[in-house]
Lab assay of single mutants.
Amino acid sequence: RLTVMSLQESGLKVNQPASFAIRLNGAKGKIDAKVHSPSGAVEECHVSELEPDKYAVRFIPHENGVHTIDVKFNGSHVVGSPFKVRVGEP
């Protein structure tokens, strides 16, 4: 089962990169992540390998409000996905 680490749920800033990590815990497959902005825009997140069992997911929010992040592994949502994060002040 995958572990999502260091996902900041609030206090993110517009046009500043945000990232979190995913540990695969021995699982093999493909991570896919997309961020949905409050206006409905959908953007791919950048996924990069940090070490053999750990990946970083990076995105840049372009507007204030609550964004939804879909994180999928081999086509299925990971536990807790979709995640909600707040950009800007509430």
Rank of each mutant, 00 (worst) to 15 (best):
R58V: 06
P90C: 04
P17R: 11
V42D: 04
K54P: 03
R86I: 14
E43A: 02
G88A: 09
D53H: 05
R86K: 13
N64L: 06
E49R: 12
F83A: 08
P17M: 11
Y55I: 10
F73N: 12
S19N: 14
N74I: 08
A41Q: 15
V35Q: 14
P82C: 02
G75C: 05
N15P: 00
E43H: 07
V47L: 03
A18C: 15
S48K: 11
P61I: 02
R58H: 05
G75I: 06
V71K: 00
K84N: 10
A41G: 11
A56L: 10
R1N: 11
P17I: 07
N15D: 14
S6M: 15
V85P: 08
K34A: 10
N15S: 08
P52D: 11
G26W: 02
K34E: 15
K28R: 10
K84D: 13
G29P: 01
H36S: 11
E49W: 09
V85G: 02
L7D: 09
T68F: 13
D53V: 06
V66W: 03
K30P: 03
H62W: 11
V71G: 00
A18G: 06
G40Y: 12
R23M: 04
P82N: 05
E44F: 03
I22G: 00
P38W: 01
C45H: 13
I22W: 00
R86G: 14
E9S: 05
E49Q: 13
Q16E: 07
K34Y: 03
A18M: 15
F83D: 02
E9H: 02
V35C: 07
I22D: 00
P82W: 01
G29R: 01
L12A: 13
P52H: 09
T3E: 15
E43Q: 03
P82M: 01
V14F: 01
E9K: 03
R23D: 06
H36D: 05
G11Y: 14
L12K: 02
F59N: 00
N25L: 02
S39V: 11
F83C: 06
R1F: 15
P61N: 01
A21C: 03
E49G: 12
G11L: 09
H46L: 13
V4F: 14
S19T: 04
S39W: 10
A21G: 10
F20L: 10
R58C: 13
V78F: 03
G40W: 04
N64I: 13
H77K: 09
G75T: 14
I22F: 14
H77V: 12
I60Q: 04
K34N: 14
F20E: 00
P52W: 14
I60W: 11
E44K: 02
R86L: 11
L50F: 08
N64P: 10
E51N: 07
E43M: 05
P52M: 11
P17K: 14
A21M: 14
L7C: 08
F83H: 04
P52Q: 11
K72V: 13
M5K: 08
E49L: 12
V78R: 02
F73G: 03
V85N: 09
D70N: 09
D53M: 06
I60A: 03
G88I: 05
V87S: 08
V57M: 04
P82A: 02
P90Y: 03
D32M: 11
E49N: 07
L7K: 05
G11R: 04
Y55R: 13
D32T: 15
I69V: 09
V42L: 15
R1K: 13
A18Q: 10
V35P: 00
I60V: 12
S19K: 13
S76N: 07
I31T: 03
V78E: 04
I69A: 09
L7I: 08
G29C: 01
L12I: 08
N74L: 07
H62N: 11
P61C: 04
A18S: 14
A27S: 12
Q16T: 15
